Amino acid sequence: MRRLKSGNGQASARNRISRSYSDRIFDIVNLFVMLVLLVVFVWPLWFVVIASFSDPNEVWMGNVVLWPKGFTLISYETLLEYKRIWVGYGNTLFYTVVGTLVNLVMTVCGAYPLSRKDFMPRHFFMFLFMLTMYFGGGLIPTYLVVSGLGLVDTRWAMIIPGAVSIYNIIITRTYFMNSIPASLQEAATLDGANSFQYLMRVVLPLSKPIIAVIGLYYAVGHWNDFYTALIYLYNEDLMPLQSFLRDMLMSTKMTLNNLSGLDTATVELKTHLAQTLKYSVIIVSTVPVLCIYPFIQKYFVKGVMVGSVKG
């Protein structure tokens, strides 16, 4: 018996040593893969930042790799001299704030009734909503509808046509169904609360994670939207930031195509500056959104995971 126990103990010790060795190999390989992925995803972002603060000549020659070379703000100065950019910032802030509020109101108003089991036609309306995810009228019919409503060349053309996302309605509906206990509705009804009071005082305060998530989705969509303005807007005073930045880059390219009559040094400076200007545009257009994300990060993962457990 002692020999048998001794043999079993030695075998288990060998297994522990083998598992420990295998775990160490796995950890090393996993760490190496994560470091490679970190470099692949982080370095391009870091390069955009350092290139925007580097000497255009150094960027053009490929000398900027890990740190800025010849620190300068000339690209940002050139960008800020484009006065229309402040008009674009104001318009984009309006479209993002007002558009996101409209999106959240429409999404909650669509998702809440569909999550109520006592709302009998919820399956019918859910079918109609999902049908729009697979079939659409196309650009021309959509433009005719927007034009018929008198929204062309108005601020509301950037907000009303995309006032709601069916995907976000489904996610929000699922969150309401799975995360808000039915007993809360019964308790609120016994206390004399109607459906609107129950929604405002019980459901919404408990739904901060999903509201933060879909709010971020909508806000980023409005902030980056230039295609809608390209279709529906003609007045420059209504253009969003992304349209002005796009026009500025396009005008820079057109200027580079007409450099005849300038001396070689000026041509070289404008060419190199146009290259660096692209990185400054990226920074200017993305930093505001990046500043918002840390404040809602704690809700982000929770909202997505809880709201997507069941369909």
Rank of each mutant, 00 (worst) to 15 (best):
I166H: 02
Y167T: 01
Y167I: 03
N168V: 07
I169Y: 04
I169A: 02
I170S: 03
I170H: 02
T174P: 13
Y175P: 03
F176C: 10
F176G: 07
M177V: 15
S179Q: 11
S179T: 15
I180H: 09
A182S: 15
E186N: 13
A187G: 12
A187P: 07
A188S: 15
A188I: 10
G192P: 02
A193Q: 04
A193T: 04
N194C: 08
S195C: 07
L199S: 06
V202E: 08
V203I: 13
V203L: 09
A212K: 07
L216F: 12
Y218P: 02
A219D: 03
G221N: 08
N224E: 14
D225I: 04
F226Q: 01
T228W: 00
L230S: 04
I231W: 00
M239C: 11
M239Q: 02
L241D: 01
L241H: 01
S243V: 06
R246Q: 08
D247Q: 05
L249Q: 08
L249A: 12
K253I: 06
T255S: 10
L256M: 06
N257S: 03
N258G: 08
L259C: 04
L262W: 10
L262C: 09
A265F: 14
V267G: 04
V267T: 10
K270S: 13
T271H: 03
A274L: 11
A274C: 06
Q275P: 08
K278A: 13
V281N: 11
I283P: 09
T286F: 03
P288M: 14
P288L: 11
